[in-house]
Design a protein around this nucleic acid. Sequence first.
RNA 1: CGGGGCGUAGCGCAGCCUGGUAGCGCGCUUGCUUUGGGAGCAAGAAGUCGGCGGUUCAAAUCCGCCCGCCCCGACCA
Length: 561
Amino acid sequence: MRASRLFFPTLKEDPAEAEAASHKLSVRAGLVRQLAAGLYIYLPLGLRVLEKINTIIREEMNAIGAQEISMPVLHPAEIWQQTGRYDSIGAEMFRLRDRGGRDMVLGMTHEEIITWLASRELRSYRDLPQVWYQIQTKLRDEARPKSGILRTREFIMKDSYSFDVDEDALDRSYQLHIEAYNRIFTRTGIQYYMVESDPGMMGGATAHEYMAPSPAGEDEVALCGCGYAANLELACSQPDLPGYPEPGLEEVATPEARTIEQVSNFLDIDPALLIKSLLVMAGDEPVLVMIRGDQQLQESKLAHKLGEFRPAGEDEIREHTGAGAGFIGPLSLEIRKIADQSLAGGVFTVGANRDGYHIKGVVPGQDFQAEYHDMRRVKAGEACARCGARLRVERVIEVGNIFKLGTKYSEPLGATYLDQNGREQPIIMGSYGIGPARIAAAAIEQYADEKGIIWPVSIAPFQVHLVLVQPADSQQSAMAEKLNADMMAAGLEVLYDERDISPGAKFADAELLGCPVRVTIGKRAAADGMAEVQIRSGGEECKFELGATAQGVVRLLKELG
RNA sequence: CGGGGCGUAGCGCAGCCUGGUAGCGCGCUUGCUUUGGGAGCAAGAAGUCGGCGGUUCAAAUCCGCCCGCCCCGACCA
C-alpha cells in the first residue's frame, strides 16, 4: 500500500479528551475517530488490526469445530422477556419499537437468540455437541463509556455458544475453548492471564476471564506464583492476624471520631483492631456487615449473600441502630449480621450504637453472633489462600470470558433434546466471549513507547514500513520501488511511504504507526546498495543487500513473531 | 445516576475575572527554496465563539436553561 494513497490521518498532538495511552495513540495514529460518546469509526489502519485479530480468532475457533453464523442485532423483545432479562437488565439495554408498535431491543449479547435457534433446530442427542459462534456487533447503553475503544456502547464481540447433552460434555466444550483461547491470545502477542471469575447470578456455575495486564484496565486480579489467579471480585486470601488485646467490654468516649482513621488515631490502636460496621439495606431488611478496620468490603461477595443491596441512608442508620454512621456496631442489635471471616477469634473495638462512643474488648461469637463469610477485598501482600505465598494484585483489561451457563437459557426457551431413552432433556450450554478491540487496545497499552505504538507482528496493520527518504532522487526511488515489489512478491504486507514530505515526518509517522519492521531507502542506500532495516521494538538496526532484503525481512519477522 | 472539568478555525490552546476590531501554534492552499529526524521564506483560505433565552447602547466575555464531551464514583449478562 502506498502511503500517498492510504487514509491515515496522524496527529502530532494528543487529543484533549484522551487519558489512556491506547486512546491517545489509537487516535493519533489514525486508527479510529470518535463519532459520539462510546461510538467509534474504524479507519483503514484500525480496521486492518481488527481484521487480523478476527482472523486469528476464526482460525482457532474453526480448529475446535466451532461454526460461524451471523445473528441479527435487532431482536424482538419477546425472547428477552421469556428469559426474564428484558426486565432484569434495565437501562443498559437499548429498547425501541418498530412501526407496528412491537417492542424490540438491540442485542447486548446473543444467548437468547442462539438458544431460540437451538430450541427449534436441535432435537436429538445425535445433534450434539454443537459450538456456534459469530463475530458481531453488540450494543450496550453503557452508563459511562470510557478510555477510547476500551469501553464503548457499540463494539464487536466474538461470542460462541456450546450445546451439550450433560455436564461432562459441557466440561469438554469448556476445555476446548480454554485451549482455543490460549492459542488465540498467545498468537495475538499480548500478555494475558486466565483467572477465576465471578459467575454472577449463575449460581454454582464456573467462569473464567482472560485478562491483559495494563494500568488502563478496569478490573483487578490477585495472582500468586503457585498459579492461583482470580478476579478481585471473588479472590480470597489469608489476612495477617494482629496482636489482640485482652477481652472485656469497656465503653470509651470517642467524640467526633467517626472514621476508622479517626478512631484509630484517637484511641491510638491499629486499625486492624477495629471493626468497620456498615449498614446496608437488602430490600427492606437492614443488614449489619462487619469488616476489619484495615480491610475493605468486596461488594460482589456480599451481593452473593444478599442479592441486591444498597448502603443505608443517614436516617435508616439512626432508625435501626440509634446512632449516627461512625458509631454503629454489632452489640445489642437485633438485625441480621454478616461478619468477615477474619473477625473470628479476635478481640476488637466496635461502635457503641451511641453517638460519640465505642466499645473495646469485644469478642465476636461471644459478645455477638453473626454469619461468617469471606467478605473482604484482597490486598496485595496478603498470603495466598492456597499456598501462603504473598499475593500480587494487578490491574487488567478483560479481553475474554468463558461461562458455564447450564440450563439458564435452555429451560426458559425450551431448548431440549431427546436422549437415548427418548426422554426430553434440557440442553446444557456454555457461552464464551472475546473483545477484539480490547485486544488491540491491550497490545497498544502493553508495548507502546514514547514514540508511538509497537505492534506484535501478528496483528500489526502492516508488517513492513518502507520509507523512501527522497522521492525526487531517481536512484533512491527506483530502489524503493523495486524493494516494494520484491517484498510484496515475498508475501509481505508493506506500507510504502513514498510521500513527498520531510524525512523526519516520515520517520515519526513510522514510529507512531508501530509496524514491526522499518526499511529505509535513502542516500546511504543509494551509495552502498544496502537497505537499512530497523526493528520498531528495541530499535535494533541491520543492513541487507537490496536483492536479499525481502527474504531478510521475512526471516526477521519470523524471529520477532 | 452523584461529584468535578471542559466546549473559541481541521487539531491543540489563549482571550472570559474587569463587556467594545476574535488571536496563537500546528495543520491546510499557492509560489520559491530545502530534503536522513516532525524544513525555511512569502502570500492566503478558514470561526453561527456548543444551542436557546435574558441583561446591556454593545455579549466569546455577565445571568438562566438546555445540549455535548471528558474525568472520578456508582453501574457493567
